[in-house]
Simulated assay, not measured.
Amino acid sequence: MPTQEPPPARPVRRVERVPGAPVDPGAWPDSVPAVAQLLREGLELPAGVTFLVGANGTGKSTVVEAVAEVLGVHPEGGSAAHLAGADRGRGADRSGLADRLRAVRSPGRRGPAFFLRAETAHRFYTYLEEAAHPGEGPPPPHPLHRLSHGEGFTEVLLRSRWVREAPVLLLDEPESALSFENQLLLGAALAGAAAEGRQVLCATHSPLLTALPGAHVLQLDGHGLAPVAWEELELVREWRFFLDAPERYWRGVL
């Protein structure tokens, strides 16, 4: 019996601008430093888990969404198979960045990437219920709709075959729906995916997730994006200062 070919350690090696694609430094999203750097230099995707960290507006979700679209995934989430017949555009909030990018892939077996974003998770559940019951009349609610937001998110992330089988897993702020314990479970699942030769790209504000052993962390800020040690992350320093003296922060705010 032939030996099954192992998955490539880096299904996607790099995302880069299509040669000759236009760049407008004065317009969004090209005006965002991290996006400008991506268009100028490309983005290397290492094996294993990579976190994108930064304040609101630094381009984390824009970059993850663009990578998802480049890999054939609808910007609202799912895999290439999900929402395949739907309108590919999200409307006015779609950045259009993916139209100017391409993926440099490793040779070897491929499968569909999977993208899950907290803000559109329930629309993804609705798609699943409609796909399972095509035809006239409202479909019965999908079981995921009967769960809390965090429970449904956890069910998809930890138990769904789409996540288990995807060679590339893309996540946008998954911690917003998860408790402390479930963030730990998610981190363990991401470590397991990395051990199986799969890649993860996750935008997050979570100091817990970014502490995952062996993970790569890129900080996005006013200078662009660069690798940063966990201890040096701005969000880690802020949380440490806050937990050390929360009343000091509240005095400044109130």
Rank of each mutant, 00 (worst) to 15 (best):
83 L>Q: 04
218 L>P: 05
157 L>M: 07
150 G>I: 06
213 P>N: 08
156 V>I: 09
223 H>T: 11
142 H>R: 03
246 P>E: 13
250 W>L: 13
76 E>C: 10
101 L>F: 02
210 T>V: 10
13 R>E: 10
191 A>C: 12
54 G>D: 08
252 G>H: 09
30 D>W: 01
246 P>K: 07
32 V>T: 09
124 F>E: 11
120 T>V: 10
194 A>Y: 04
124 F>K: 12
41 E>F: 04
224 G>E: 08
9 A>S: 13
119 E>Y: 12
95 S>C: 12
148 S>Y: 08
36 A>E: 15
82 H>E: 12
201 L>Y: 00
108 G>S: 06
209 L>D: 07
213 P>T: 11
117 R>A: 12
181 E>D: 08
19 P>A: 14
252 G>N: 07
184 L>G: 14
109 R>V: 05
4 Q>D: 10
245 A>P: 03
48 G>R: 02
104 V>N: 08
123 R>S: 11
137 G>T: 06
115 F>V: 03
159 R>A: 13
247 E>T: 04
151 E>Y: 01
142 H>E: 07
169 L>S: 07
68 A>W: 00
66 A>E: 02
229 A>V: 08
88 R>Y: 05
184 L>R: 12
127 Y>E: 08
77 G>N: 05
238 E>M: 13
231 E>H: 11
220 L>I: 01
195 A>I: 03
132 A>I: 05
91 G>N: 11
39 L>S: 00
89 G>S: 15
153 F>V: 10
80 A>N: 06
38 L>H: 06
97 L>E: 00
237 R>C: 15
104 V>Y: 06
60 K>C: 00
197 G>D: 06
165 E>S: 07
198 R>I: 03
48 G>H: 02
171 L>M: 08
74 H>S: 05
192 G>W: 02
144 L>F: 12
136 E>L: 15
153 F>N: 15
67 V>M: 01
75 P>C: 04
152 G>C: 05
69 E>Q: 14
150 G>K: 04
10 R>D: 05
124 F>P: 04
146 R>V: 02
200 V>N: 05
149 H>D: 13
65 E>S: 14
4 Q>Y: 12
197 G>L: 09
103 A>R: 03
8 P>H: 10
122 H>I: 03
162 W>A: 09
63 V>C: 05
179 S>M: 10
169 L>Q: 04
149 H>E: 12
123 R>K: 13
18 V>S: 14
17 R>Y: 00
29 P>E: 06
118 A>D: 07
229 A>R: 13
72 G>C: 12
26 G>V: 00
65 E>V: 07
99 D>E: 15
123 R>L: 13
123 R>W: 08
43 L>S: 01
100 R>I: 00
6 P>G: 08
96 G>S: 00
182 N>H: 09
202 C>F: 01
147 L>H: 06
20 G>A: 04
59 G>K: 02
86 A>R: 10
43 L>R: 00
208 L>Q: 07
189 A>E: 09
150 G>S: 11
152 G>A: 04
145 H>V: 03
48 G>Y: 01
125 Y>H: 11
46 P>D: 15
153 F>P: 01
228 V>M: 14
234 E>T: 13
117 R>P: 03
